[in-house]
Design a protein around this nucleic acid. Structure first.
Length: 548
RNA sequence: GCGCCAGUAGCUCAGCUGGAUAGAGCGUCGGCCUCCGGAGCCGAAGGUCCCGCGUUCGAAUCGCGGCUGGCGCACCA
């Protein structure tokens, strides 16, 4: 039982003793920011003040008097501020987290807060028409980390990529590639309106001619474009997969829009909506009455020319996720798609799904800075900075960390100079260095960290303020992970890691471990802090190096 | 015009299911420095939390109104 659980139970008991009901007031009991406020603080008295009709501080004093904690558990309990109750634990209680960290090792921080959830996390899902850009990288880092966080809290999470391989964008890719092949064969040909201008198609055109022979350019245009469709799409998919692999992302499932047609997922979906009475015909088109479910205007499903809008396969795809048994479908979308959220949510409601099922996580665009200047163009893509360019320049760890250290819905400036800097200004370096530094202690000691045991070490000797703070920070890790998972906000973990790394660096500079009287307990602390740094980085898919 | 998101230190941003004196890094200023691995360490200054009204014992946090910025408002994808 953690100190937190002991105090919580004692508070509930004390509330009953003074004639109050504390079970439903939602009081907080947590670590304090200021050490002078003790180790654990609760706002319970202030919440009970109204119920009891007494001033908060009087309630707090009554609670304190009624509070029964085990002997030797707390140094003191005091009433503070407007009515907080601050608990000062005995040193061995504060240090009690250390044996727990050592015992659980790489699993410390895992919980079952989200057990039972089956979550589909769909991210990147770029059209197979060109290289991935930095915005996709941000979506990839975020989607991957969200899936990981959910798994750390006991949920089942599937990472999924959706390929739009049936729309007009693919036609444009095919026509653009065909035009590049014609150009490569020395003929006049223009990239069609709305086509893809990037240099990558010139390179691909040259490769195609090399592989298929010069005669490929002499094919009848119909057949040439048809073959370019397949060739272009497959090659772009392959490149995207390579980039994502290089970025450390592993997908469990890749779904294709074309399969929705091939496997007849469209008709039954439309029949379902019609049976529920949410579709209607007007102006020669078939509409979905999304306004009945919170959208601004009704949306067309089948255009008057008989073809479907993009909305139709998308609804069918999400219905498919539901039928595959997922309890939640989280989509990571670029900000340019945020106007699409309301109608998709409306469609999910129209299908009778609860609002907990569908969630769109919007990722704002990324700007890239280098040398104080915005980097706008990539040689390869012709228009944007590619994910590959970024990885080549900063490395995977820095790129992932930077994408994750800000909320997804905040605009973000990626500073390449900072990300590649080997100094403490660089948060990735700072956090990884903390891990490497602690590893260095064991290296110098000539023993593996895993051989350091808590048993027999006098953990109550860890009394320095920095040590107490480290213990509190380590204790908080499982809650940080759970909160980050619940809110889908990985940046809470980077913030936590920077806080712990800062304490580690402060402690390391101020105290020695080896050869000191406190060597044993400090080795235990170092091992635990190192473990928690490694676990936090693991959640985010970032390496924890032994040395820098 | 309507909708979504954001507005916190000079800069980049945390903090937002309401809690104590609003935090971090960078930058600035001052001091220190050969230590288990670093261009390192210590300290200081710096804020109308966009504005106003409201709810509350208590508001950066919740509600309403306004201002500013980004994005979106197709029988496009």
């Amino acid at each position: 039982m953690t100190p937190h659980a002991v105090v919580r139970a004692a508070l509930l008991e004390a509330a009953r003793a003074i004639g109050a009901l504390a079970d439903d007031v939602g009081f907080t009991l947590g670590p304090t920011r200021d050490p002078s406020h003790g180790d654990l603080a609760t706002n319970l008295a202030m919440l009970l003040a109204r119920q009891l009709g007494r001033p908060p501080r009087a309630v707090a004093a009554a609670l304190r008097d009624a509070l029964q904690l085990p002997p030797g558990f707390a140094r003191k309990v005091e009433v503070a501020g407007p009515g907080f109750l601050n608990v000062f634990l005995e040193g061995e209680q504060v240090a009690a987290v250390l044996p727990e960290v050592l015992a659980r090792g790489a699993a410390f921080g895992r919980s079952d807060a989200a057990r039972g959830q089956r979550v589909n996390v769909e991210f990147v899902s770029a059209n197979p028409t060109g290289p991935l850009h930095v915005g996709h990288g941000r979506g990839a880092a975020l989607g991957d980390a969200i899936a990981s966080l959910l798994q750390w809290t006991g949920a089942e999470a599937v990472r999924e990529f959706y390929v739009n391989d049936a729309g007009v964008q693919i036609d444009r890719l095919a026509q653009s590639l065909w035009a590049r092949i014609q150009q490569a064969a020395g003929r006049d040909a223009a990239i069609p309106e709305g086509g893809y201008q990037g240099a990558y198609l010139q390179e691909l055109a040259a490769r195609v001619l090399q592989a298929e022979g010069r005669g490929f350019a002499d094919l009848p245009p119909d057949e040439g474009v048809r073959r370019c469709r397949t060739i272009g799409m497959l090659s772009q998919r392959e490149e995207q997969d390579d980039d994502l692999r290089a970025f450390g992302v592993r997908y469990d499932v890749v779904s294709a829009e074309s399969d929705l047609y091939a496997q007849d997922r469209i008709g039954p979906m439309l029949a379902d909506l019609a049976a529920r009475g949410h579709t209607f015909e007007a102006d020669g088109a078939l509409w979905l009455r999304t306004t009945a479910f919170g959208d601004d205007k009704d949306r067309v499903l089948r255009k008057s020319d008989g073809t479907f809008t993009y909305f139709v396969p998308d609804i069918a795809y999400h219905r498919d996720k539901h039928e595959r048994g997922f309890t939640r479908a989280i989509d990571v979308w670029g900000a340019d798609h945020h106007g699409y959220v309301a109608r998709m949510r409306a469609a999910m409601r129209a299908l009778g799904y609860g609002d907990e099922f569908f969630h769109a996580e919007i990722v704002q665009l990324v700007r890239v800075m280098r040398g104080g200047q915005e980097v706008r163009f990539s040689k390869r893509s012709g228009e944007f900075v590619t994910l590959r360019d970024l990885i080549d320049e900063t490395g995977v760890d820095a790129a992932r960390y930077f994408f994750l250290m800000r909320r997804g819905d905040a605009q973000f400036v990626f500073d390449i100079d900072l990300a590649t800097s080997q100094t403490d200004d660089n948060p990735v370096f700072y956090v990884q260095m903390a891990h490497a530094r602690l590893s260095g202690i064991f290296r110098v000691a000539g023993r593996a960290a895993e051989t350091v045991a808590a048993a027999g070490a006098d953990l109550a000797a860890l009394t320095q303020p920095e040590e107490t703070e480290m213990l509190k920070q380590i204790r908080a890790f499982p809650d940080v992970v759970a909160r980050a998972a619940a809110t889908l906000e990985p940046h809470r973990v980077t913030g936590f890691l920077e806080g712990l790394a800062r304490l580690v660096h402060l402690w390391y500079h101020k105290y020695r471990v080896l050869g000191e009287p406190e060597e044993q307990p400090r080795l235990v602390l170092a091992r635990a802090a190192r473990q928690v740094l490694a676990n936090g980085l693991a959640v985010l898919g970032i390496r924890a190096p032994e040395r820098m």
